[in-house]
Design a protein around this nucleic acid. Structure first.
Lengths: 360, 360
DNA sequence: CTGAAAGCGCTTACAG
DNA sequence: CTGAAAGCGCTTACAG
């Protein structure tokens, strides 16, 4: 493997000159520059990353800390990976993928061994055990996901509060008065997936203000359990005309569930989800949804991280950037039918609305 | 950040002794070992990865080269990532995720800069342009996917030849005589996705030997195009009683397509797919399938790669390991109905079998 | 059983 | 405009 010494010898210059010719950090005669370039070309020289890191204290590598949890919907994770990876590459950084069950320990290792110049934490929980490790590190970190304490880190997430309000407002304005919110599994909340209650509490607030009835329920994040759960929920809430889905697995299971019940959207039920455009495309999901923007979040996190690493934003206060919800209309919401119009009792699984069901 | 010099000072020993205490490469008095361990603990010392790499020429990092192509079904990729990442961690290696449009250039960079001790190439094409780069590198490489020329690398893949034979034999033995193979999009084949024709040619061979009619067609790998394509194929091949799917997107679209046509499996049509258990679980796919074993392939590739890196297999001949197909039975295959039993003309989209259709 | 020293391949003041 | 030299933090022969 060629070293900079080889390049220098072939070009007939000193090693420092060869180095400066490569970095462009001081002006050289055109002739020397060309001779060095030719030597690099001839030898197929690439600087040794370890040596460079040792000399400069920079690795040009970012740590990407994913955690795959049991009840997480794995396919949704890929989009974050791509957003981070593509943005990093564009800015001249490589990505070290750290996917370990013990988050804090591996984060600490990667940070104190100086394998990375900074880290992106995915899937951040409300009281994420990785945060104390990150705060005591030399390198900066950017989070995707909103923890309780945002001090010392840059935070990016979808604005789940506004998302909850927006979903309710949208359906209310179409005339819906009975809504059902389908959440992630309860485990996700217990583990600190704060976005579940951020969306839910905002939705409940908005519903209360507007005089809308909103039921909320947890649902599994795996097939086929989630399908069964959706059937049970629809059985239990026959009066509901609008569905809010904060659960990717539920969104991907709903089309078959509706088909099995002989229901169509938006004729029988209006549906608003929360997932990415890419996700919708891959699984052909027909529901209007608030864009969860994984690629954008990955991009924002990496950009800010690199700004901090490179000193551009070193002294800048830390940011908490919640991106506003944007609804992609796929035509799955409309004004509800009047109760009289709804022939639900004719259909498989469907039940007659209970006596107490109120009109819109 | 503490260095080994700090550790040595605190422990009251020389730097070399501290280093040996950490590596265990020579015997030390119990007392010294303990003092060093205490110093490490006290200082929170972790060796600097760059310095270590420079001194040892080992990074304890593996490169994972993915390529995301336009017409690839992204969610299937995640399982390979996890297989590689989990196995690498278990063996003491980190993973550098390299996901670049220009495969050969980035492979070369990662290799000659010595960022990694070896690489796993995913999604290997028949004449993969990354292979010449890999062959001329110092570090070993393991492939997932079978190229035309396997020299100088270790290769792991599903045995698509046996898979094709097995699918046909399975359906033939149940009594099917008219089969349809749904492939990946033609682009995948053109780009060198050899597994497409490996499966197809073996299936055709087996079909010819058994006197079975086998039609084959390309289908898109994105929704909703693939759904439309499936409808068109079923319209065009009304006599077909058995479907072979070598296309994940087709598998995930087929349940709705069958539902839309009022068909059920295996009553109206027997289906055999080729995808992973995890994939089936995530999307609740009801079809029996040959396990594509992404986690196992990732694991095999990493194990062999690490064996080569660590010299255990340095002189060993390179392997081409094709894992035999194993069918996971989900009950989607059965004996075909007799033509007279098949009330297909009553159903939406269905057509009466043409006069030439022959009985089983 | 332990230490002093060389060397891995870079970068960057320092000096001319 | 260019070069000689120190130093980044490790590991590992070499020497005792």
């Amino acid at each position: 493997m060629a070293t900079i010494g080889d390049v220098a010898r072939v070009a007939g210059v000193s090693r420092s000159t060869a180095s400066y010719a490569l970095s462009g950090k001081r002006s050289l005669s055109e002739e020397v520059r060309l001779r060095v370039a030719a030597a690099v070309e001839e030898l197929g020289y690439t600087p040794n990353a370890g040596a460079r890191a040792l000399a400069t204290s920079q690795t040009k590598t970012l740590g990407l800390l994913a955690q795959f949890l049991d009840d997480e919907f794995a396919p949704a994770m890929m989009q974050y990976f791509l957003g981070v990876s593509n943005t990093a590459r564009g800015l001249g950084y490589d990505v070290l993928l750290v996917n370990e069950p013990d988050g804090p320990a591996s984060l600490r290792r990667v940070l104190t061994s100086r394998m990375v110049d900074g880290v992106v934490l995915l899937n951040v929980a409300e009281h994420d055990t990785r945060l104390p490790v990150l705060r005591s590190a030399q390198q900066p970190g950017a989070l995707v996901g909103l923890p309780a304490d945002c001090s010392g880190v840059d935070v990016f997430d979808l604005d789940f509060h506004e998302t909850g309000r927006h979903m309710v407002a949208h359906l209310h304005e179409l005339g819906h008065r009975d809504l059902l919110l389908v959440n992630q599994p309860e485990h996700v909340l217990e583990r600190g997936g704060a976005y579940v209650w951020r969306l839910q509490s905002a939705a409940e607030e908005e519903a209360a203000q507007r005089g809308v009835t909103l039921a909320a329920a947890f649902a599994p994040s795996t097939q086929p359990d989630v399908g069964r759960a959706l059937h049970a929920l629809l059985d239990a809430h026959p009066q509901v005309t609008g569905l809010l889905l904060n659960n990717e697995a539920a969104a991907s299971a709903l089309p078959s569930v509706l088909a099995e019940r002989g229901l169509t959207s938006p004729d029988d039920v209006s549906v608003v989800g929360r997932y990415s455009r890419e996700f919708a495309r891959t699984f052909s999901l027909p529901f209007s949804a608030v864009e969860s923007a994984p690629d954008q979040l990955g991009q924002l996190a990496v950009r800010q991280l690199v700004r901090r690493i490179e000193g551009t934003a070193a002294a800048t206060p830390h940011v908490v950037h919640l991106i506003p919800p944007s609804l992609t209309d796929r035509g799955s919401t409309a004004a509800p039918r009047l109760p009289a119009d709804r022939p639900r009792a004719d259909r498989p699984h469907a039940r007659r609305p209970p006596a107490g069901a109120h009109a819109p």
